[in-house]
């Protein structure tokens, strides 16, 4: 059960992601973005948060051209698990692994605070240990987290149950007041068609230890660990 955490110039959540992955019982190591292959023992790729390539041009746009990202696309297309968090989510949309784009927050402010998100899909490898409608307290820290896609794409995401997480109140009510950044339908995280790629703006790796005040984020890493255990013959 091995996680690979991709390190780009400007990644800054890679250490937290490594620690959270290890706490779920897996082995985890860093993969530098200039590498040209993904080691064959890697089961799950994490694209961590940060400001890859200084967010130049558009968030995630340059990272997509890193040699390792081409391998990540191949890995995902073969069914490998890929989770992109914050800047990692932006990289996934720029790479075409997930639809849509993350626009500037409607407030124009960088927002760094805890939010509540609701699990609306508990069938995926990233969310299987959550209950339908379960509310998690998870921090966000982004300036461009305003999820946008064409109406047809949004309809497909909704119809196919691919909205994994939605911003909500502490009671699980997904309304405008609970929407921190202007995302369509309060979308905080989405899955690809096959369900093996998740992108989310909130940072579960930052709440993976009770010593930090909350470990709600561990549910996501536990889900991934469970999925990898099931996939691995003993």
């Amino acid at each position: 059960m091995n996680y690979g955490i991709v390190v780009f110039p400007g990644s800054n959540c890679d250490h937290d992601a490594l620690t959270a992955a290890q706490r779920s019982g897996g082995n985890a190591r860093y993969l530098f973005h200039k590498e040209t292959s993904i080691p064959s023992d890697i089961d799950c790729i994490i694209l961590p948060g940060g400001f890859s390539f200084g967010d130049y041009l558009r968030c995630g746009a340059i990272a997509r051209f890193s040699p390792l990202m081409r391998e990540v696309v191949t890995f995902a297309n073969k069914g490998g698990l890929v989770i992109g968090i914050c800047n990692g989510f932006q990289i996934l949309t720029e790479s075409g692994l997930l639809p849509g784009v993350l626009l500037r927050n409607t407030s124009l402010s960088f927002i760094c605070r805890d939010v509540y998100i609701r699990a609306d899909n508990t069938q995926s490898p990233f969310t299987s240990s959550l209950q339908q409608g379960q509310v998690l307290r998870i921090p966000i820290a982004h300036g461009e987290g305003n999820y946008f896609a064409e109406p047809e794409t949004i309809r497909r995401l909704e119809d196919e149950g691919r909205v994994a997480f939605r911003y909500c109140t502490a009671d699980g009510d997904s309304n405008d007041e609970a929407n921190p950044n202007g995302s369509i339908n309060n979308i905080a995280g989405i899955l690809n068609e096959r369900g093996n790629v998740l992108g989310m703006m909130p940072h579960p790796e930052r709440y993976a230890d009770k010593a930090l005040g909350c470990d709600d984020g561990m549910a996501i890493f536990q889900s991934i660990a469970n999925a990898m255990r099931i996939a691995m013959p003993l």
Partner: peptide, 8 residues
């Protein structure tokens, strides 16, 4: 390929 994102 890169300079613009046709979605937006």
């Amino acid at each position: 390929a890169l300079i613009a994102n046709p979605i937006i």
